[in-house]
Amino acid sequence: MSRIHVSTTINGDDVDYLCEAGDTLLDVLRDQLDLTGSKEGCASGDCGACTVRLDGRLVCACLVLGAEAEGRSVETIEGMAEGEELHPLQRNFINKAALQCGICTPGILVAAKDLLERNPDPTEEEVRYWLAGNLCRCTGYDKIIRTVLETAAEMRGAA
């Protein structure tokens, strides 16, 4: 099967790959680039475990074709920390026990970071609706929502 050559930017780095026409961006990230932090929970855009940013907008990587990343910028969980320095959301997810099994965590962190960049002071309801596309089956969401709200307050205090 002939493959498509794609040049794109992932977490700030130039990346080239070949993909089949039917490969999703998630397939490429996971199977070709070893960026397995983005998870496949459903491959139908319902669970949000593969949430990434494409040109600054949240998408499910399973609903984007690998070929569509040509010339664009992709941000994944692997690019969230600055070297050793964790993003405050990452640090607080550990310290406030906002994860159990952790499979939904990368997608939730990418989505929550995007929220706080758009809205540094969200209400509980805004956080709940923003993350409604990210399924978590372990936590009942309580500690996730609290941690996002507390991190938002912390980041506002530091700003």
Partner: peptide, 9 residues
């Protein structure tokens, strides 16, 4: 295992 789980590792 927290660090690995918040960084995608």
């Amino acid at each position: 295992d927290g660090l690995d789980k918040v960084t995608g590792r």
